[in-house]
């Protein structure tokens, strides 16, 4: 464990907590893409298949349970909670996220660390996470006024993977044979997808005006 990875995990945890705060306290999911939440639930479900077979540390297992529990409960809230589901605008959240799942699955079958079910599922989760934010970014472009919590949620979610890139650089230089092209390339693509969001997020923060993404 290094400071970059711990900061990354804490940033990721913070993004989940901000989203849960928004949904649980103001009972609203306005501006939140259910499709991105469903993709993330699938990412964690396919990545943490080893949660009961490979014990790494209490920290690792605890965080996995938190990410699994929060992602599925957020999906449940938006789909089934009588008040929250009313603030979900189905007509705006139109990204065909199933078109993301198939290519990621095919790629995982071709490019993986070992051709076993768990490893293919793990690679699938890495590729899927790289593109999981797309429905959310498309929705943000359509959302006229993005509320602060939604903006912070997306920012933290993008920042966590950027911190992981620093973690991979650190581990490359401090650990022998630490090379993981699958996570490195996917993590870089994932972070680059946030590039224009980060730009507009900092602009709105610097000029102290409402966050607005150009359509």
């Amino acid at each position: 464990m290094n400071i970059f990875r711990l900061a990354g995990d804490m940033t990721h945890l913070a993004s989940v907590l901000v989203l849960l705060l928004k949904i649980h306290t103001i009972k609203s999911c306005a501006g939140i893409s259910l499709k991105t939440q469903e993709l993330y639930a699938l990412v964690f479900a396919t990545r943490y298949l080893d949660i009961f077979t490979d014990f790494i540390s209490l920290y690792n297992t605890t965080m996995k349970l938190i990410f699994l529990g929060s992602s599925f409960s957020i999906v449940w809230y938006i789909r089934n909670h009588k008040i929250v589901s009313r603030s979900y605008d189905k007509s705006q959240d139109t990204f065909r996220h199933y078109f993301l799942i198939i290519p990621c699955l095919l790629l995982a079958l071709l490019v993986n660390e070992k051709f076993t079910f768990k490893e293919v599922m793990w690679a699938f989760s890495i590729y899927l996470e790289a593109v999981a934010i797309l429905p959310q970014l498309v929705l943000l472009q359509r959302t006229r006024n993005i509320d602060n919590l939604t903006g912070q949620y997306v920012f933290l979610l993008g920042a966590y993977r950027a911190l992981y890139i620093l973690n991979w650089i650190y581990r490359y230089f401090t650990e022998t044979h630490y090379v993981h092209w699958i996570t490195w390339v996917s993590g870089l693509v994932q972070t680059l997808l946030y590039a224009d969001f980060f730009y507009y997020y900092f602009e709105s923060w610097k000029n102290n005006k409402k966050l607005q993404l150009p359509a």
Binding site: I56, M63, K64, F67, Y164, H177, H180
Partner: peptide, 10 residues
Amino acid sequence: KEENEVHDEL
């Protein structure tokens, strides 16, 4: 198990 077989990152 070798180190790189178990994914130690979240």
